[in-house]
């Protein structure tokens, strides 16, 4: 059957055919017609009315009781019609909102764009995936003098649009800093003041800031309450947690951040992440932090970018392809 017609004649004829033969092909026709009704926004009360009209034409002497009962049915359908129209309108609204958010997400991507720098002797892998359309995680690279590298990984406590808006502010505060001239602890102290002054008291940001200088192979870092990363020592083939102290950004106006440093030898790795990685869930249970390391170990023989991609794919699948939180993972490995 081609495109179903939804006029009174077609309905009446199909109804008649079914009453006479009770055949499946008429019912299939009814199914097609029903789809056409929906497509053309025909409301349930109008369909009942179409039915009444058809009955009257087929059976002019239809009993008054049956006629009345059909009127009664019509009356009960009026609200279904209204509800249907309301859902339709809400659905259109939702589509409009969704496309607006996706535009905003594009703007955000452009605003927060940071290029993975090319530094000789350093293999860098990074992945950052939002749970919803907008990302509340943020990472940032800055290449300074003599191939020094600044790396920030941050997470707004909270998800979605408010978190994303907040991140743009952080990015611009960092842009006006002469980062390469500043120590990580000082940068955090400055950003803490910015967040404390400008962001709603209910919103916090955690950040890990590190600076690597190839001239002395030293990683200097500080953390503002951020999910601890890991250090991989190639010589002993062991992982250890990067332990730090420091309050999340935006709580107190004068927080200070202790400075730490770590010598990076050939083959060593720095693994930075957000809690979207460590708080992945299997069913209703959180994974253990060690599980992240187990997965990294599986792919450690690959280049850094391949490692982070594989780890992401592993946890994406583990969570049935629905991230609960924004996921950001950065891996740095000294090659020579």
């Amino acid at each position: 059957m081609d495109v179903a017609k939804i006029d009174i004649n077609s309905y009446r004829d199909l109804l008649k055919k079914y009453i006479d033969h009770q055949d499946e092909s008429s019912l299939y026709g009814a199914e097609q017609m029903s789809k056409a009704f929906i497509k053309n926004h025909i409301l349930p009360d109008e369909i009942v009315s179409l039915h009444i009209q058809s009955l009257m034409e087929l059976y002019p002497s239809l009993s008054q009781d049956i006629q009345n009962s059909m009127r009664f049915l019509l009356e009960t359908m009026i609200y279904y019609g209204l509800a249907h129209q309301e859902y339709q309108a809400l659905r259109e609204n939702q589509l409009a909102l969704r496309s607006e958010i996706s535009l905003a997400a594009n703007v955000q991507t452009t605003l927060l764009k940071t290029d993975k720098p090319d530094i000789e002797g350093l293999d860098i892998g990074v992945i950052s995936m939002p749970a919803h359309q907008m990302n509340g995680d943020y990472y940032h690279f800055i290449k300074g003098k003599q191939d020094s590298l600044g790396i920030a990984v941050a997470d707004v406590v909270g998800k979605g649009i408010p978190a994303a808006l907040c991140m743009s502010m952080i990015k611009y505060s960092m842009d006006i800093l002469e980062e390469e001239a500043m120590m990580p602890a000082k940068i955090l102290k400055y950003l803490n003041r910015v967040v404390e002054r400008n962001v709603d008291a209910s919103m916090f940001i955690t950040m890990f800031y590190a600076q690597y200088t190839p001239t002395d192979n030293l990683l200097r870092y500080a953390s503002a309450g951020h999910e601890p990363g890991f250090f991989y020592c190639a010589q002993t083939d062991t992982f250890s947690e990067i332990e730090t102290k420091g309050l999340v950004l935006g709580v107190l106006p004068d927080s200070a951040y202790p400075s730490y440093e770590q010598k990076i030898n050939k083959g060593d790795m720095i693994i930075l992440l957000t809690d979207g990685v460590t708080e992945c869930r299997r069913g209703n249970e959180f994974i253990k932090r060690e599980e992240v390391l187990d997965v990294i170990k599986q792919y450690m023989h690959l280049p850094a970018q391949d490692i982070v991609n594989h780890v992401y794919k592993y946890f994406e699948r583990l969570q049935d392809f629905q991230l609960r939180d924004d996921f950001t993972l950065v891996i740095l490995r000294r090659e020579v």
Binding site: L74, E75, I78, Y79
Partner: peptide, 9 residues
Amino acid sequence: VVDQARFAT
């Protein structure tokens, strides 16, 4: 008939 019912509603 439909419009009568809608008006009444």
